[in-house]
Design a protein around this nucleic acid. Sequence first.
DNA 1: GACATGCTACTCGGATAGAAACTGTCCGAGTTATTGCGG
DNA 2: CCGCAATAACTCGGACAGTTTCTATCCGAGTAGCATGTC
Lengths: 163, 163
Amino acid sequence: MKLNAGVEWVLHTCLNLGWIEEDTREGASTARLAAFYHLPPAYLGKQLQALVRAGILTSTSGPRGGFRLARRLEDISVLDVVTAIEGRTNAFECTQILHDGPGANPATDYRTVCAVSQTMSRADLAWRRELASETLADIRDRVLTFSPGAPRQTRAWFENTRA
Amino acid sequence: MKLNAGVEWVLHTCLNLGWIEEDTREGASTARLAAFYHLPPAYLGKQLQALVRAGILTSTSGPRGGFRLARRLEDISVLDVVTAIEGRTNAFECTQILHDGPGANPATDYRTVCAVSQTMSRADLAWRRELASETLADIRDRVLTFSPGAPRQTRAWFENTRA
DNA sequence: GACATGCTACTCGGATAGAAACTGTCCGAGTTATTGCGG
DNA sequence: CCGCAATAACTCGGACAGTTTCTATCCGAGTAGCATGTC
């Protein structure tokens, strides 16, 4: 029950894309996005591809290509990003072992009936609800209040490393 | 980000132990607890050992030995059981990649400062809070209202298979 | 008949393989800017 | 000087290994009950 490391990477990367796109109207390539945090470029690219499939990013090939946000940060929830990487499966997956116990009803769907499954599902739901209630724009704003210079610094880095 | 299968197994097993101990004053061996759901006995035993280390169960060796609840179901939260199996680590582990970015402060602990980490930690907290708010006794009571015959059926099975 | 004693069967516990998922890497298909050539 | 075409460089995308975690199994240490022999 450990989240993929890619979740942390792409969350920070999306924030960076948000700041880059405010400035230049273009995106950024995997190589530069990875270099910003010294991440393995190819593996970060793999995660970003998942975000493209989820409709969070768009990608363009060739020179001056790369990744861009498909929609505004206000319209991307943290849950959207997590789901894109981790998939739609819950942390607790009821295997309905009650079916293998005595006195089981083969027709019953214990994923909805079993009290254990209900409790675990409720916890998963609380987790998802918390992530769904926050957008990347909310996180960006919290970053701004803590370190107002972050956008400028980030943009400057991407400007300088381009040369 | 998938929970161990053992979590489901031991939750159901603890409920069974609760019903057995209401009847006979004794516990049950791994073999019989596993046979109840056709689970791999040795692997279930491994999980139950983790619950012993966590102080949820007690174990006795030798003939007529096995596992017993260390305390009442009212005093065992679902979180206790999950933590015993999964460990105390959060689903999201902040690796502080901001330390590898430009303009980072080496002295800063980004696990508490980083806005991304804050959001993910909040979600993990909501998940844990939900699990901590429910005890095994709560689950047992919900089972009773849905299928009042469950305790008797379970006890009967363990009685019959003993012979 | 009662008791001590050795034995047998049974249990947990940790050490040992196998499978699956995560992490990381590599090369190919496609695209765009560039550069050289011809008009 | 302008337009066109071939080229070269750059990008994503999916296919291919390495590592960690989870799943499953096996055998040994220890214990409780039982059978046996003795008093």
